[in-house]
Amino acid sequence: MLIVEDNALNIKLFCDLLAAHGHEPKAVTDSRQALDLAREFLPDLIITDIQLPHVNGLELIRMVRSDEGLREVPVMAVTAYSAVGDEERAREAGAQSYVSKPISVVKFVSQVDALLNPVPVAEVPASV
């Protein structure tokens, strides 16, 4: 898992939570490093803050979606500045999940689990 977050306390919280649930998170504080690191180890999930210096999280999500090797990686957007329309903008950029800060630990972990273990769509039998 890749965590893109510029706040050290949030990085620790996310990493500790994910590690406690059996995941191996890697974190970067600079969104400019995120794509290179993601390409290097192809994470199962990218969790990104929206309010980041240099390249904001929405633009980072768009960059992930346009990258041939990363476009299928699920993305969770996390932000402290949740306002009307923020979730829609994150989803339009390509995030599959959105969590506002301060996070609910239960919601955060359940969203991570849902992204990593999506429920398969039942196959529809062909008409006879």
Score class of each variant (00 low, 15 high):
V64D: 06
H21Y: 04
S82R: 05
Q96M: 11
A126H: 10
L9Y: 07
F108Y: 00
V128A: 06
N10V: 01
L37A: 03
I47A: 03
A80W: 06
Q96Y: 11
A80R: 07
M1D: 15
R71T: 08
V78K: 00
E87C: 07
L116G: 08
E59Y: 00
F14G: 03
A77V: 02
P25T: 14
E5C: 01
R32Y: 04
V75Y: 10
D44E: 13
N7V: 12
E72F: 06
V73P: 03
E87I: 05
D49W: 07
L9P: 08
V105A: 09
P118H: 15
D49M: 00
A27Y: 06
A93K: 11
Q96T: 08
R89G: 03
N117Q: 14
V106N: 08
S100P: 03
K26Q: 14
N10R: 01
P102F: 13
V99Q: 04
Y98G: 00
A20W: 01
V99P: 01
V75I: 08
L58V: 01
F41V: 15
Q111H: 03
Q96A: 11
R39A: 06
L42T: 15
L45Y: 12
Y81L: 12
L17R: 04
V121K: 15
A114D: 05
I11M: 07
P43A: 10
L52A: 09
Q33W: 09
A114N: 13
A80H: 09
P125R: 03
A80C: 14
I103L: 10
E59P: 00
A93G: 09
A8Y: 15
S82G: 12
D6E: 02
A38L: 12
I103W: 03
T29Y: 02
E72P: 00
R71M: 12
I50T: 02
V73A: 05
H21V: 02
E92T: 11
A95R: 04
E59D: 08
T79G: 07
V128R: 09
P118N: 08
F108Q: 02
Q51E: 03
S110Y: 02
A93E: 15
E123V: 15
D49Q: 00
R89H: 14
S31Q: 01
L17A: 10
K26E: 13
S127L: 12
E5Q: 01
V84L: 13
G85M: 09
L35C: 09
G94V: 09
L60M: 02
D86I: 02
P53D: 13
E40I: 12
N117W: 14
K107V: 08
P53N: 12
F14L: 13
E88V: 06
V99D: 00
V105F: 11
T48Q: 01
L42V: 12
D67N: 05
L52C: 07
E87K: 07
A80I: 10
T29N: 08
R91G: 14
C15N: 07
V28W: 06
E40L: 10
D36Q: 11
N10A: 03
P125S: 02
I47G: 02
L116E: 09
